[in-house]
Design a protein around this nucleic acid. Structure first.
Lengths: 228, 228
DNA sequence: TCCAACATGATTGTCGACATTTTTGTTGTC
DNA sequence: GACAACAAAAATGTCGACAATCATGTTGGA
């Protein structure tokens, strides 16, 4: 999920992923303060690396850094939430166009292998793996599309989506179901662009519709602004 | 241009902006190696800060960092170029929607003041200022739209656009003309969303049409891949 | 002469210690 | 008792030195 290149998952990326997972599992709530020293102790790494990881997480929209004040788990507002899903639909559509135009038949098994892992984690009830793999499927599509730019954009949007989902979902976690992923693979195999676009659109709408984005609750991003 | 928040332009952001300007002015060509020590000497800062700046520039797509190998000015391919402009149109459209829906009349003067600076720099023949202000206008629109998310996305896309323009433009630098910006301001003042969207679309198409994106020249991103 | 292994130089990556800023707790005065 | 100024503690920000890694040039052998 957080690996920057194909093989080379930098050491800081590992911290990013663990934080991301903790957020997805609601162990870290939005607004929580992230002290550098504390994180360094937990992950048994130097504080410098924690800073590096926090900077990455900020650019991915997962944490907000206030200069000289510290890092906090971000709290995206409803407007940002809508924008994130809006652009995620755009990006995933573009990915699908490139993917169906350029994909090599020998890459299809990679998708199926991923799907198998998703189903397996789902059956085992392994929440952590399920969350990781669920986002990973979309990211794999981007990688197979061959565009590093689309991949990096999508990773950003997926991170934000995850955080938004934890904040605004109505019920328990919905499983970004493996079945919908399976249907997508079939469309890709058949190189059915229109079908794939329709499925992806529906898939993402399902996720968004599970959220309650009606409330205009202003979000405390900066403690100073929040108490005017 | 590179200021992260409103007032608080971090010290590393200054380095980012100077590198960005050098790239825009074609003083730094795509593929150029950026040695940390060298940059530290030129900018008279510590190497740690240079690393910080390079990391930011990488996430903005302006430089490519190869682990243990160094940083290079990025060389986006034609596919990435098309994607960047594609999404830039999407983002700017979204900005315009939010802007016209929410803008306060008292903010219009800020736009006009910016336009005045653009015209002034243009008349003086101050290329550096012209480049900076030209991108700054679009970024100002995003800031006035009130969405930090859209702002950060757009800053990223503008950086990449600049680099792409220097790589693929046919003739000399086209001035992302102040006149088209002026027309946009009029539409905003009149809260004419459809008009504004049309103008923005045309404005961005003008920039893209000045480029020669026909050649499928593969780009050397990684020296290893390039010589297969 | 060509190739491989090694040694050297240069460059990036990492860490710990110190300086700065912010926050919190205390004291003294009105 | 409330408020302001000050002092102590804690957290963040910065820097320089050292370690690890990669590129280049050299040497020895076939």
């Amino acid at each position: 999920m957080y690996q920057r290149k194909e093989v080379n998952a930098g050491p800081a990326a590992e911290i990013c992923e663990r934080v991301w997972l903790s957020i997805a599992e609601r162990k870290l709530r939005p607004g929580t303060r992230l002290k550098e020293e504390q994180l360094a102790e937990v992950f048994e790494v130097s504080r410098a690396r924690v800073r590096q990881a926090l900077a990455m997480l900020e650019s991915d929209g997962l944490v907000t850094i206030l200069p000289n004040r510290g890092a906090f788990v971000a709290e995206p507002g409803v407007d940002e939430a809508r924008d994130v899903f809006h652009f995620r639909r755009q990006v995933e559509a573009r990915v699908m166009e490139r993917l169906i135009a350029t994909i090599d038949a020998k890459d299809i098994p990679r998708l199926e292998a991923h799907l198998t892992m998703e189903r397996d984690a789902d059956l085992r009830g392994d929440t952590t793996a399920t969350i990781r793999l669920s986002g990973g499927f979309h990211l794999l599509l981007a990688e197979l599309s061959g565009s590093a730019f689309l991949s990096s954009m999508l990773r950003d949007l997926i991170s934000r989506s995850t955080l938004i989902t934890t904040m605004y979902r109505r019920h328990v976690h919905h499983n970004c179901g493996p079945d919908e992923h399976a249907a997508l693979i079939e469309s890709i195999r058949a190189r059915d662009l229109n079908g794939a676009l329709r499925l992806m659109e529906a898939h993402l709408r399902h996720v968004e519709e599970e959220l309650d984005l009606t409330e205009g609750v202003p979000v405390l991003r900066d403690l100073r602004e929040a108490l005017t």
